[in-house]
Structure formats: structure tokens, C-alpha cells
Simulated assay, not measured.
Amino acid sequence: MCAHVLVAEDDPKQAELVHLYLRREGHTASVVHNGREAIDEMRRRRPDLVVLDVMMPLVDGLDVCRILRRESDVPVLMLTARSTEEDLLLGLDLGADDYMTKPYSPRELMARVRTLLRRNGRTSAAPDPVLRAGSLTVDPQRHTVHLGTLEVRCTPGEFELLATMAAEPNRAFSRRQLLARTSGIDRYITERTIDVHVLNLRKKLEPDPRRPVHLVTVFGVGYKLSTADATAPGTAPGTTRAR
């Protein structure tokens, strides 16, 4: 089931991460980085749910929640680094429907989102969840990758990278952007990790890894997943013929 979610989060990395997970669930999202933009976007788009950070510039999340409650019954999931009982009760008293403290698990966040949407009847039929870039298909629900009819075995990190790029084929991503979208809250992953994943994926996807046509380098920027196709390998390393 899909919905439109407003994400109000002043940390760009956290906002990108939440946006990515929402998209993988089949939802659309608007992302803003301060409380004033959150109020304006809420009035303009009328989202199905608001993921609201407490600590934001211009207008903080508590005041945003207070204003939203005067104008709408939209479900509100608050995020905060504050973990005291008083802070939690204040957020709930202002009308928040749920409350999560940072750092949080993105998967738990998505479970809370699903619960709130179901509880409030704010979902509609979901679009096709399979991501495509030329002959490459990535299925986030089944956690599978196919190149034509060949199944490509990927590590979790490689899969996250492919799913991120397949969601926006032909877009050039910098290493920093890919790192923000694939590392979650793990601070020990570096930009070098992205290069290693790309190197390994090219061995699995490309007819000639030295001349990639799927996962290509954009000089001065980073990488993109191209929709241009070449003849798929007969049985490339790391692939098995799908049954």
C-alpha cells in the first residue's frame, strides 16, 4: 500500500535515508529541512503522514505539531534525540501519534509508518515495486537482482547500492550521496566501501568489467546505473540462470 509522506528533518543524511526507505516501501515523499517549510508543505500537499523531527530551525517540531493539530488530523510520527519521559509525553500531548528516539532503526521506522497508515486508513494500491534500469531488474521485496534472465547474487551492501541507483536510473550519484543512502546509521562505512562495491558489481554485471556499460563512472562526479544495454553475458561470474 502506498501513501504520500512529508519528511521534516534538518539532517540531510537522515532525511535522505528516510526518503530512500519510504520509496522502497512504494510511498512518495516530500522532504523539508525546517519547521516553516514543513507547515507550508503540509498546507500545500496535504500528506497522508508526517515524519517530524523535533529539533529543527525556524520553527521547532513541537510548534509544528501544535499548528498541524489545529488544522489537520494527519498522523504525526515524531523523531527526536531527546529520550526523557517528559519529552515523550509532551510530544504525545501536543497530538503526535507516535514517537521514536534517535538513533533509530530505519526498518522499525517503516514498521511504525505502516502501522499508522493502516490505523488511519490512508493508503492506496501500491505501484509495481520492481526497479528497472535497462535489462537490469531489482526487486526490493524479494531481495533479488536479475540481468535479463540471469539471477545475480549480491551481498547486502551491493544490493543496497543497486537498489538506490535503480530507483533513479541514469542519475549520476556522488560517492557521498551513495554512502548517505546505503550506510544507514553505521558510521564505520567509508566512501572507499562504495568503490569496492562498484568493482565487485562490475565483475557480476558487465560483459567486460574494464569497459562497463551498466554501472558506469561519471568523471568528476561518481557513478550512475545506465539504461543502455549490451549483450548480457552467457553465465557471468556470480550469476545463475533463473528458474
Rank of each mutant, 00 (worst) to 15 (best):
I189M: 09
Y188K: 15
V7C: 02
N200E: 08
G35Y: 00
C65L: 14
A133H: 08
S226R: 02
L22C: 06
P12T: 02
T227S: 13
E71W: 01
T149Q: 03
L68A: 12
L150H: 11
G184K: 06
V51R: 00
I185W: 10
T28I: 04
S72I: 07
P47C: 04
K13S: 11
A15V: 14
S105M: 06
P140D: 11
L225Q: 05
V130M: 10
L131R: 10
Y223E: 02
L201K: 00
L17Y: 02
V213Y: 08
L52N: 04
P106H: 05
E85Y: 03
G234W: 00
G26R: 10
L58P: 03
E25N: 01
L62G: 08
Q177E: 15
R114F: 07
E108K: 06
A111K: 06
L179N: 14
H146M: 01
L199M: 04
D60Q: 05
H143K: 15
G157T: 02
T231F: 09
G26V: 04
T155I: 14
Y21K: 12
D195V: 04
T80G: 12
F219R: 15
A111C: 03
P12W: 00
L6Q: 09
H27N: 09
T28A: 15
V74Q: 12
L225R: 07
T80M: 12
L225K: 06
V113H: 03
D128G: 11
H19C: 04
T80F: 11
E16A: 10
E160P: 00
G238S: 13
D11N: 09
R23G: 04
Y99M: 09
R46T: 01
L94I: 14
N200T: 01
S105H: 09
A15S: 14
P127I: 08
L215A: 09
L49E: 08
R23K: 05
V50M: 10
V64M: 05
G91R: 03
R210A: 15
P209A: 02
R118T: 02
R202H: 07
Y21N: 04
L92M: 13
A96C: 12
